[in-house]
Design a protein around this nucleic acid. Structure first.
Length: 374
DNA sequence: TATCGACCTGTTGGG
DNA sequence: CGAACCAGGTCGATT
C-alpha cells in the first residue's frame, strides 16, 4: 500500500514530532492514533515516532525513497546542531527539559499564509483556517481513519498555488471564519501575483534576512512579528526572533530584560530583538522556539491546576534549579507597562526599520558550523 | 516617531 | 452570562 517507507534514526531528544507538529509552527498536520498525517511538498506523508526513530511512509508515491528521506531531514532541520551560550543556565535547563524541538524548514508560501492568519489568534483556529486554504489545493491522497469519528477521512492536499489562492474572495474567506484577515489574504495574494507569484516567494529564501523581512512587510497582514515568523520557519533565517508580549515577559523574568510588554513600537522591537540575539547567539531563532514552547507548557500547567489568589499574585516560574542570573524587578516593570500604550505598533517607516536591522546583523558573525547528530 | 482605536472570534476571569 | 488595559498583531489616521 505504502510505496515508500523508511525510518530516520533519530532520538526523541533530538526530534520530538509530537512537539514540533502541534506547537504552532505548522498547522495542517493531524494525529490519528499514533500516526501523524501531513503533506510535505507533493508528498502525502505519514509519520510515527518510535524508540528507534521516526518511521515515515509516503502514501501517494510521488517521491523516491531517498528523495523523501532527505526531504524529511531538511524539513526537521536535522542537519543542524543547535548551539547555545554555554553559560546560560536558564536556557540549558529549558533545553534539557523540553527536548526534541526543531526549527522546522517549512514551505515558504504555506508559512506566509499561516502567519498572516496567526495575528491575534490561537493555534486551533489558525489550524482550521489553514485547513480551509489547503482544501483548495490538489488532492494527493486520502485515507480513512479509525479513530477520527467526524470526517472519518483525512485528505492530504498540496498547498494551493498563488494563482489558486488569488481566486478566493473576501466574502468566501469571511464565511470560512477568517475574520478581518480575509482582506489580508485577498490583498496579499494579489500582490504576490503581481510580484511574480510562487517564484517570488521562493527567492526570498536566498535574500538576506533583513531584505527578506523588508519585502515580506510590504504585503498586507504582515507586520514585523509575522515577518519574523515567516523568515524563521519558512525562509530558514536563524537570526529571526518573532517578538511578542510572551517573549518579552519571559525575557523580563529570566533575562532581566526590563522592557514593557506593551507599546511595542518598531524602534523598540529592533532594540529588544538585537539584545536577545546577543544573549542567545547565532541560533537565537531556535532558542526563541524552545523558550516559547516552555511558556506554552507552563501556561497549560497553570490552567490545569486551579490557582489560589495567593498564587496569582506570585507568578510561579517552576524554578527549582532554574537560576535567574539577574534579579527581577516586577514592580518597576509594571509601572512602565502602565505608562506605555495598550496596543498597536505602527509601521510607517519600514525602510528605516529595516536599515536598523541590517546594522545589527552586520555585527553578528554567522559562522557555518555543521554537525551530524543522528 | 509614537500613540490610539478598530478589527473577527474564541476563551476566560469576574460579578 | 457578558464584558475584557483578553488573545502569539496589523493597519490607518493622527500628532
Amino acid at each position: 500500500m505504502n510505496k515508500v517507507a523508511g525510518i530516520i534514526r533519530v532520538d526523541r531528544k533530538v526530534l520530538d514530532i509530537d512537539k514540533v507538529l502541534q506547537m504552532g509552527m505548522t498547522f495542517r498536520w493531524r494525529k490519528h492514533g499514533q500516526i501523524w498525517h501531513g503533506v510535505i511538498g507533493r508528498n502525502a506523508v505519514q509519520l510515527e515516532q518510535k524508540n528507534e526513530g521516526v518511521a515515515y511512509s509516503c502514501v501517494n508515491g510521488d517521491s523516491s525513497d531517498s528523495g523523501l528521506n532527505s526531504e524529511l531531514i531538511r524539513f526537521f532541520d536535522l542537519e543542524r546542531k543547535y548551539e547555545i551560550p554555554h553559560d546560560d543556565e536558564n536556557l540549558t535547563n529549558a533545553v534539557g527539559k523540553y527536548e526534541g524541538i526543531r526549527q522546522l524548514q517549512l514551505d515558504p508560501i504555506e508559512t506566509l499564509y499561516s502567519f498572516i492568519c496567526s495575528s491575534n489568534n490561537h493555534i486551533s483556529r489558525i489550524s482550521s483556517m489553514m485547513t480551509f486554504l489547503g482544501s483548495k489545493g490538489d488532492l494527493l491522497a486520502q485515507i480513512k481513519s479509525d479513530t477520527d469519528v467526524e470526517p472519518n477521512l483525512f485528505r492530504y492536499q498540496a498547498f494551493p498555488s498563488i494563482e489558486t489562492l488569488a481566486q478566493l474572495t473576501e466574502q468566501e474567506l469571511r464565511a470560512a471564519n477568517f475574520g478581518y484577515r480575509a482582506k489580508f489574504i485577498v490583498k496579499t495574494s494579489a500582490s504576490i501575483l503581481e510580484n511574480g507569484g510562487n517564484s517570488w516567494v521562493e527567492t526570498l529564501k536566498s535574500e538576506d534576512y533583513v531584505v527578506a523581512v523588508e519585502k515580506l512587510m510590504t504585503l498586507a497582514g504582515i507586520g514585523r512579528k509575522v515577518a519574523d515568523c515567516i523568515a524563521l520557519y519558512g525562509l530558514n533565517k536563524r537570526e529571526s526572533i518573532p517578538l511578542d508580549v510572551h517573549l518579552i515577559r519571559l525575557a523580563n523574568r529570566d533575562y532581566n530584560l526590563k522592557e514593557a510588554e506593551k507599546g511595542l513600537t518598531p524602534t523598540r522591537y529592533e532594540g529588544i530583538v538585537a539584545r536577545l540575539r546577543e544573549t542567545w547567539g547565532r541560533d537565537a531563532g531556535w532558542v526563541q522556539t524552545v523558550l516559547f514552547y516552555k511558556e506554552l507548557q507552563l501556561s497549560k500547567e497553570k490552567k490545569k491546576s486551579p490557582k489560589s489568589k495567593r498564587e496569582k499574585n506570585k507568578p510561579r516560574t517552576e524554578k527549582k534549579e532554574v537560576k535567574v542570573e539577574v534579579k527581577e524587578e516586577p514592580v518597576e516593570l509594571q509601572s512602565e507597562a502602565q505608562v506605555s500604550s495598550r496596543k498597536g505598533p505602527v509601521v510607517t517607516t519600514r525602510r528605516r526599520a529595516a536599515q536598523k536591522i541590517k546594522t545589527e546583523c552586520d555585527e553578528m558573525p554567522l559562522k557555518k558550523a555543521k554537525e551530524e547528530e543522528f
